[in-house]
Simulated scan of single mutants.
Amino acid sequence: MAEIKLLGVSLSPFTHRVEWALKTKGVEYELIVEDTKNKSPLLLESNPIHKKIPVLIHNGKPICESMVIIEYIDDTFEGPSILPKDPYERAIAHFWAKFLDDKCLPTMGKALLGEGEEQEKAKEECGELLKILDNELKHKKFFGGDQIGFADIAANALAFWMGIIEEASGVIWVTSEKFPNYCAWRENYNNCSQVKEYLPSRDELFTHFQSRFHSAAAPK
């Protein structure tokens, strides 16, 4: 039997991406929870370039970067396809996944968790990015159409984590009035049976981020 280990953090959206793919394919695996402040020798050896989670170790061979890992899982194991088979649709899924990872997530992270001028600038840029996503999702349930897929999983932090962070911070600035199609997609994602049962604890995530905001606001 193939030995599959996943080095990750239980509340990480990037770890969750990989877990979702493994569970969708029905692949058994061992989750090895990492301490990102005290990285294990196994993590440093398995991902010597970026030194980050997640890392999938399949029969002793490490694969790094969550979306690369998902594509590897899709190609390696039997089960429902994650990426489209059609070359054009596959290319489009890759495009949006890259846009989400390279542009949206870093900017939204700064907008939600940054401070001062950097945060305000990020919020402005975030509004423009959300307009792009809102337009792309017009008349669509998911990025790929009617079925959840590769690009939607790339956007998992936007769908689930982002709303919880907003709530924990006490400031809600992504609304259905401003971004109706994006918010409808987010609701579809979080209520999708393929996703819902594999999401981490909402209460645990809320407590984690609420504590983070309280710590940041406490007098130094």
Rank of each mutant, 00 (worst) to 15 (best):
L129S: 02
S176R: 07
A154T: 05
E166H: 08
F150C: 01
F179E: 05
I165W: 01
S169M: 10
K138A: 15
M162Y: 04
F143D: 09
C126Y: 00
G149R: 01
K140S: 12
F179I: 09
T175P: 07
F143T: 08
E128F: 10
D134T: 10
I165Y: 01
E177A: 15
A151I: 11
D134C: 08
G163K: 06
F143L: 12
G170F: 07
G127Y: 02
K131Y: 04
I164A: 07
V171C: 06
F150Y: 11
K138D: 15
D152I: 02
K138R: 14
I164H: 03
A168Q: 11
K178F: 11
K140F: 12
W161A: 06
G145T: 08
L130C: 13
E128S: 14
I148G: 07
A168W: 03
G149S: 10
F142T: 05
A157T: 06
I172E: 14
F160P: 01
L130R: 01
D134Q: 08
I164S: 04
V174T: 10
W161G: 04
N135Y: 10
G145I: 09
L133I: 12
E136P: 00
G163S: 12
G163V: 06
A154N: 03
K131D: 14
V171N: 07
K141W: 04
L130G: 02
A155P: 00
G145H: 03
F150P: 01
G144Y: 02
F179T: 10
D152E: 03
K141N: 14
A155T: 04
K140P: 05
E128P: 00
W161R: 07
I164Y: 02
E177S: 15
F160D: 06
A154Q: 05
S176D: 15
K141H: 09
G170Y: 06
C126W: 00
F179Q: 03
D146A: 14
T175Q: 11
